[in-house]
Design a binder for these strands. Structure first.
Lengths: 264, 264
DNA sequence: CTAGTTGTTCTCAGATCGAGTATTTCTCAG
DNA sequence: CTGAGAAATACTCGATCTGAGAACAACTAG
């Protein structure tokens, strides 16, 4: 067991005797995988590091947790607002959830740093502003990013892994939650919703069956009675408009087309 | 942004200039929700705290992370082995996964402590040994534990919430993974497997349909060709024995009976 | 105006699911 | 030893869901 050495019986005495150097120094950060749709493509927010380590590399937005002053969720929301420039009101339309914690021993060369990663789904957001110790901030298409393709930006720390985990979580979440709507405007059409699924899952879906399924799951979407202003960019009738429903989970779920029998 | 103040360009210089007091002191623990089946009931491992805070309360087993010396997963496995007395070999049959991180500002009255919670599924384990700063350690039935029923042991910190989250994760995991087998011996019968589902989901399942489903999902179980030594304790023929198959995910999933239409 | 695209609805066959039944084999009470 | 009850497994049947495709109308681009 590795408890801190000093532990008097009451808190005041403990704080008086407290010396931070007795503890193994460890720092805690939050890093956020912010996903959004831009021109129909899935993008992730990256910042260019202005200082070592990994100076010049791209990294996830994030920062150190203000120990004792904020919950982890609050820290993530604060960093998200700082890096995207979103108002508190606009932030309410963003889905934010904890993804997982990463603490490999030397993932940060400076010192032991454990990162609590968050995952955010946002509708099309304005261009980010660089700030703090970020030289630049930019939306980056995720295609070819994970897996280490040719056009990859070099990612700092273990952020490539965190993004890969976030994408897998996002793919799974679309199956059994209505969170695909978080990528869209408050009113959207079924074909727009289908485009979100197709982009994140990387597969074409059957338009007729998708339409039937979305409308049949209780609480997924509710009709506004209106229709879109224009038809599709390449023809077709105007689609009907819907709002997100009140369901938190999809029952029954929208399952991905077979990704190989069994997934052993 | 809340970066540490000093940040020279090379690591050696940084370490020389490093002063832990410049950082907000924060400690990191791992806490583990270890679930196992004992006499057909789901149990969680709890330890009685021998020292303040929450002296005399029951808490999840866990301890401080050795900063920079171990991965979070390794820290969880180490704590699990210490508290259960399991050998490295026996540990290999235990499923261990990260559950989430908890960092409310004053969840520990001593100082800012963030806990990375893990979730473990184990077959019937020997009685735990008290050790370190635990006065006692005991398997505790989870019935009536969450929710704050009458017979509750008072739980330290936010551990009641962590256990509740772990149980909900466990219920979901049984749907789309074969991890229910992690609660059983290497060879088991379909009715034993069904008992695990019924205990964790808290519902009786249709024996015939469950049987058909388990055998039809590819890679869930594979037959040993043997049958159990005895029939059921209250009669019935001897059941056939199976081993866990090689599937990591169940396709198609084993869905829970409707927990209210929609789950809004 | 024409050709091509797309939103929406329908149809239909196959798979799946919930519920119930049948058969056989076992344990337990007496 | 025997009979009652319980349980493992297999089977049936109707309702539901799914995937694939076709039909039709409404729209855009040229």
């Amino acid at each position: 067991m590795s408890r801190p050495p000093a532990r008097p019986d009451d808190e005041a005495a403990f704080l008086a005797a407290y010396d931070p150097r007795e503890f193994p120094a460890i720092a805690l950060t939050v890093d956020i995988v912010v996903l959004t749709m831009r021109q129909g493509r899935l993008n992730v927010l990256l910042v260019e590091r202005a200082a070592p380590p990994f100076q010049g590399c791209w990294a996830l937005p994030g920062g150190f947790v203000k120990a004792g002053q904020e919950d982890l969720d609050e820290a993530a929301a604060r960093e998200l607002a700082e890096e995207t420039g979103l108002s508190a009101g606009a932030l309410r339309r963003v889905h934010l959830e904890q993804l997982g914690s990463y603490g490999a021993p030397r993932r940060d060369p400076r010192m032991p740093v454990v990162s609590v990663a968050y995952l955010a789904f946002a509708p099309d957001l304005p261009d980010p502003r660089a700030g703090g110790d970020a030289a630049r901030a930019a939306w980056t298409p995720v295609v070819g990013l994970h897996g280490g393709g040719t056009g990859d930006r070099q990612l700092a720390f273990d952020h490539a892994q965190i993004i890969a985990d976030g994408l897998e979580r996002a793919r799974a979440k679309l199956e059994y939650t209505p969170l695909a709507t978080a990528f869209l405007a408050p009113e959207f059409t079924v074909p727009e919703l289908r485009a979100v699924y197709e982009e994140i899952w990387g597969e074409k879906l059957h338009p007729g069956n998708f339409h039937r399924k979305v409308l049949s799951v209780p609480g997924f979407v509710e009709s506004t009675g209106e229709t879109a202003e224009r038809g599709g960019s390449r023809g077709g009738p105007r689609a009907r408009l819907y709002r997100a429903g009140d369901a938190r989970l999809l029952h029954p779920a929208l399952l991905r087309p077979d990704r190989e029998e069994g997934v052993r």
